[in-house]
C-alpha cells in the first residue's frame, strides 16, 4: 500500500515521530556502510562524517564504515555523539572503542553480490531531527498500524493540518484513514508539504 501525507510545511518536523522507532527502506545492499548511507539513503558525505558519530549495524558498534557491509535484512542505527563514558565508547573509531570491543562490528569480507534488499533504519536524537524530514519526503516503509497510532496520538489541532491521500486517488480525511485495519500492513509513505 502506498500513501502520501500532505502537511503544511511548518508542521513537517512534527511528523518525524513517524520514523521512530524504525522504518524500512528498499535499496541496494551488499555494499559498504558509507556508500549505503551516502548513496542509497542520500545523506551528504560531510554530514555522515561529522555529524553521525555513532553507528550500529545489527546492534554492533561500527568503527570502520568501509569494511562493514549492509545486507538484506540489516538493521542500521545512526546517532550523533553521545554523552557519558559509555556513550563515548560507542563513537565510531573513538579512543574508548576498545572498551566495547567484545561487541564491536568486526568488518565483512568484500562482496561483489550487490542486489536490492530491505534494510531497517533507526535514526536517533539530533540525527532523527535533522534527517527525518528528508526521509519523509523521499519516502519510507512503515507499519500501517504504527502510522495510525501516531496520527491518533496527535492533538486535533495538528490533525487539521494534515491530509492523507492514496498516491493515485482522492484525498481521505485522517479519520477515514484511521478507520481502516492496517495492523501488520507495511505502507510506503511519502510526505509532501504545502504552504499554508
Amino acid at each position: 500500500m502506498e500513501l502520501s501525507i500532505a502537511v503544511a510545511d511548518d508542521h513537517l518536523p512534527k511528523l518525524v515521530g513517524l520514523l521512530a522507532p524504525w522504518f524500512s527502506v528498499r535499496a541496494q545492499v551488499g555494499i559498504d556502510l558509507k556508500t549505503f548511507v551516502c548513496e542509497q539513503l542520500g545523506v551528504h558525505e560531510v554530514y555522515f562524517e561529522e555529524r553521525i558519530q555513532t553507528i550500529f549495524l545489527d546492534s554492533k558498534p561500527v568503527d570502520d564504515v568501509a569494511t562493514a557491509l549492509v545486507h538484506d535484512g540489516s538493521v542500521l542505527a545512526l546517532s550523533a555523539a553521545m554523552p557519558g563514558l559509555v556513550g563515548a565508547t560507542f563513537r565510531k573509531g573513538g579512543q574508548y572503542s576498545w572498551m566495547r570491543k567484545a561487541i564491536s562490528h568486526g568488518g565483512d569480507e568484500k562482496s561483489d553480490q550487490a542486489a536490492h534488499g530491505w534494510v531497517t533504519v533507526k535514526l536517533f536524537n539530533m540525527v532523527l531531527k535533522e534527517l527525518g524530514p528528508g526521509f519523509l519526503e523521499q519516502g519510507v516503509w512503515i507499519d500501517g498500524g504504527r502510522v495510525q497510532a501516531f496520527i491518533n496520538s496527535q492533538p486535533q489541532v495538528f490533525r487539521q493540518h494534515i491530509q492523507v491521500l492514496p498516491l493515485e486517488g482522492l484525498p481521505v480525511s485522517p479519520d477515514e484513514f484511521l478507520g481502516q485495519d492496517l495492523s501488520d500492513t507495511s505502507i510506503f509513505i511519502k510526505v509532501r508539504t504545502f504552504a499554508e
Binding site: 550500529f56 546517532s79 553521545m82 557519558g84 536517533f124 536524537n125 539530533m126 531531527k129
Partner: peptide, 17 residues
Amino acid sequence: GLPAYGTNVLTNVVNEA
C-alpha cells in the same frame, strides 16, 4: 544533545548496542 534530550538521550543508543 544534552540540552535537547538530557542524559536520557542514551536510552536508544545503549539499548541498540
